[in-house]
Simulated assay, not measured.
Amino acid sequence: AAGTGGQNGTLSRERSGGHAVESFTDQNVRTAEQLAENVTATDPNRLAYLSPALAKDARLSGTPAVSVRAAFGGGRSPYLTALLVDYGTDARAYGGVSYGPTPVCYGQGVPGDTGCARLAEHVTVTAPYKIITRGWIDVRNRHSASRTDLLREGRFYDFDFDLQPTDYVVKAGHRIGVVLISTDRDFTLRLPAGTGVSVEPGDSSVELPLVGGRSALG
């Protein structure tokens, strides 16, 4: 398991138990991509847990879920964000398209529609990691979206929430990572920085929708 101050821990197949506590401090400037990027270095604004390198390709198809035992204190951010990350240098879809300069016409145009379009190509980028999917919880609404329950500062609670559904193949030699942060700059409100989040990794877990079950990890 990781130590305090944003060191990296191991993503293992079984819960380790125990009550070791690891901590990070929320910030509201860097994006989730920036916080997930360099897991070879420590980072005080996140906790990261990585699997061993995969022996073979593993397909994730469905809805990942996390259970995190954590305590909040010393700030205003109520968010807990989990990132599921593919670590391994590869060419991946970048999430956009590029359009060629020459239009292709399919028939006679009409007013407002020329009958022509430009061919589109998916954009790829070679990078050492990619966020596969992510999920969020407002810890004040841990029981229901319609019910607010304030937290007692420094007290540990169990937070269970889903990540966004996905269908993704993690290639052999890559590592699966779970990164915990608070503010997700692109998807949550950006409240003042400084909230402290303490996590008990031994009593936390992630459930992955692996096609073929556990044996798919080799």
Rank of each mutant, 00 (worst) to 15 (best):
S67E: 11
P44V: 14
V68A: 06
N45Q: 13
S16K: 05
E37R: 07
S215N: 03
S12P: 02
V206G: 05
A145N: 10
G73D: 05
T183H: 11
A82K: 04
I181A: 02
K130W: 07
A65Y: 11
G154C: 10
L47G: 08
S67W: 04
S98H: 00
G95V: 09
G6F: 12
G3M: 00
E207T: 12
L60C: 07
N45H: 14
N141Y: 15
G73Y: 11
Y79C: 03
Y99M: 03
D184G: 05
L47A: 11
H143P: 00
K130Q: 15
L163Q: 09
V29R: 08
G107E: 03
G95N: 03
N28H: 06
P101G: 10
V104K: 05
P128D: 12
A48K: 02
P44R: 10
L150H: 00
G213H: 05
V197E: 06
V169G: 06
G6C: 11
R134P: 00
F72I: 03
S204K: 02
V66D: 05
L60P: 01
E14P: 02
C116W: 15
G112F: 13
A53W: 07
L180E: 03
E121P: 00
L151M: 11
P128Q: 07
G62F: 06
R15Q: 14
G194F: 03
E33F: 15
A71Q: 12
A145S: 10
L208H: 01
T89A: 11
Q34W: 08
Y94H: 10
P128V: 00
L35Y: 07
P201E: 06
T102S: 13
T114G: 13
Q34F: 08
T42L: 12
K56F: 01
S61P: 02
V211C: 10
A36N: 04
T126C: 02
V206A: 08
N45G: 07
S205P: 01
E207C: 03
S198D: 13
G177T: 10
P52L: 06
T42H: 04
E207S: 15
I181Q: 01
R140Q: 07
V199K: 06
Y49I: 05
P111M: 06
T148C: 06
P103W: 13
G112L: 10
H174F: 01
D26R: 08
L35H: 01
Y99L: 06
A117P: 02
R134I: 01
G5H: 07
P78I: 09
P103M: 09
P44A: 14
E22R: 05
P101F: 10
R142G: 09
D43W: 04
P201L: 09
R175W: 06
Y49S: 12
S77A: 14
T188R: 09
R147H: 13
S204Q: 01
T4A: 14
V104M: 08
S144D: 15
A120Y: 04
Y157P: 01
L151Y: 01
S215H: 11
Q108N: 09
D162N: 12
V139I: 15
I176G: 07
I181V: 10
G73L: 09
S61C: 02
T148Q: 13
Y87G: 05
Q164C: 00
D203Y: 12
L208A: 08
G194W: 05
R46H: 09
G135L: 12
A216Y: 07
D149P: 02
T31L: 14
R30T: 00
R152P: 04
T63V: 13
P201H: 04
L84P: 01
N141P: 03
